[in-house]
Simulated assay, not measured.
Amino acid sequence: MTTILVTGGTGTLGRLVVGRLRADGHEVRVLSRSARPYAVDLRAGGPGLDTALAGVDTVVHCASSPRGGDEEAAGHLIDAARRAGVAHLVYISIVGVDRVPFGYYRAKHAVEGLVAGSGLGWTVLRATQFHDLLVQLFDGLAKLPVLLLPAGVSDQPVEVAEVADRLAELAGGPPAGRVEDLGGPEVRTFASLARAYLTATGKRRAVLNVPLVGKAYRAFRAGGHLAPERAVGKGTFEEYLARRRG
């Protein structure tokens, strides 16, 4: 089996990818800012990154932050991967990064370009948003007495474990370029998802759809972040909520 390094290997997605790869018999190294012995801040780079990549065959790049720095981090990772002779770089991106002019999406799209132009063998998988991200959003919105939602926007949440399974499968195979997107099983209005959340958590809130402005909102409203033709995920939002409650 191969030696695989997972960046962001302690995060929501990365830790599941690590588990899947180890279950498949691969030697896996976990890279994050705090995970010993490969504690590296990718935004800073440095010799620790070369140490982490020595002898690595494949990298699964899950580390990402909406607070910025993704392009810089990817640049450091790619440079070090070239020096180490890494054969395959797998990157997880988001459906719609090329259609929605939202800052974080633009950064993810830019990283896709860096990966494709790296000179390494590469694979890029785009997925829709994870169930837990919606819950985090609704947790924040539910602090108010009225749940305010962007009018006319839908979502297609996917089970993070299914994305981890697919990434592990891709990491165990040859470079495949841009592969087919992985979308959740249902395109749902934000209001229906919010009501499912309120029912599951026992919170009583009015739901109000509020029209917004701007190019990013229009793109979300047009469904630029959705992949209805790739609704291949199995786990529903209600099933995720039931597991959390249990």
Rank of each mutant, 00 (worst) to 15 (best):
H109S: 14
H109W: 07
H109C: 11
A110K: 13
V111D: 09
V115Q: 01
V115L: 01
G117E: 15
S118P: 11
S118D: 10
L120G: 11
L120F: 01
L120S: 12
L120H: 07
T123R: 02
T123W: 01
V124W: 00
V124K: 00
L125Y: 00
L125H: 01
A127H: 06
T128L: 11
T128D: 03
Q129R: 12
Q129V: 10
H131L: 08
H131C: 06
D132F: 12
L133Y: 07
L134H: 14
V135W: 06
V135E: 14
Q136P: 02
Q136R: 13
L137V: 11
L137W: 09
L137K: 09
L137D: 01
F138T: 08
D139G: 04
D139L: 06
D139V: 00
G140C: 03
G140T: 12
G140V: 07
G140P: 00
G140N: 10
G140Y: 10
L141C: 03
L141Q: 10
A142M: 01
A142N: 09
K143I: 00
K143N: 08
P145W: 01
L147Y: 09
L148Y: 07
L149C: 09
P150F: 10
A151K: 14
A151L: 09
A151Q: 14
A151P: 02
G152L: 13
G152W: 14
G152P: 13
V153G: 15
V153N: 15
V153P: 14
